[in-house]
């Protein structure tokens, strides 16, 4: 059979259809790999890197992102090798500096250090789930990224917000909030959804709203 491949995950032999991701294959075995930016119904994004695993391809070892890496014959996958744990801990440590309310179980499981890094809690981890949901699934294009590098932000644009957000909220409750993994933004955003953006503001930050943040966004988009 040419369209299935056989390989091992954490020592267990698995068969999976070609094109399946390592993450899906692992989950079908009940192996838990943490993710933030992955969503079964949205296009691949590969941004949070939490789902890294270590593969061994005939003696050649490499860290890969399991949500993107397709299954291959003869691969040996370790989901919690020493290196995976170590790097995942550092990634979580970086995220924790932005997300003060990271779930305890993640912190405890990976023993994420608390005070080594400079914290600036924005609660947005830039997983892009809300942006992708809004564009890919709703076709509303209210949410989008602006800026690049360490200045990158997620913003809600006023014009499409006035057009789409009220209906979207009325139908199913704010769907973008439902996909957000960090929670705190949810409450903040729900109190004042994008279509209730203050007058004169053409786009506003999704993350914790204070004046300083709004100013940063205004500066980025030139308003």
């Amino acid at each position: 059979m040419s369209d299935t491949v056989t390989f091992t995950i954490d020592g267990k032999e698995v068969s999976a259809d070609k094109g399946t991701s390592l993450l899906m294959a692992a989950r079908s075995l009940g192996i838990d790999i943490p993710t933030l930016c992955h969503h079964d119904e949205l296009a691949d994004f590969g941004a949070c890197r939490l789902c890294i695993v270590e593969i061994d391809k005939g003696g050649w070892k490499k860290i890969v992102t399991s949500c993107l890496y397709p299954v291959e014959d003869g691969l040996s996958v370790e989901t919690e090798s020493e290196k995976v744990i170590r790097h995942r801990r550092t990634i979580l440590e970086l995220l924790r500096a932005r997300w003060s309310e990271m779930p305890r179980e993640l912190i405890e499981k990976y023993q994420v250090p608390e005070d080594r890094m400079e914290t600036e809690s924005t609660f947005c981890v830039m997983c892009g789930l809300c942006v992708r949901h809004c564009s890919e699934r709703k076709g509303a294009n209210v949410l989008g990224f602006v800026g690049r590098g360490t200045e990158r932000q997620v913003v809600a644009h006023e014009e499409p917000a006035l057009k789409y957000c009220r209906d979207c909220a009325a139908e199913n409750g704010m769907e973008c909030l439902a996909v957000c993994p960090t929670g705190v933004v949810v409450n903040d955003f729900a109190l004042s959804p994008p279509h209730m953006t203050p007058k004169g503001t053409k786009a506003r930050p999704v993350r914790a709203r204070d004046n300083e943040n709004q100013e940063e966004v205004n500066k980025l988009i030139g308003d």
Partner: peptide
């Protein structure tokens, strides 16, 4: 869409 335009120009 405007969100794409602003992603691009920023």
């Amino acid at each position: 869409p405007i969100n794409h335009i602003y992603s691009l120009v920023t």
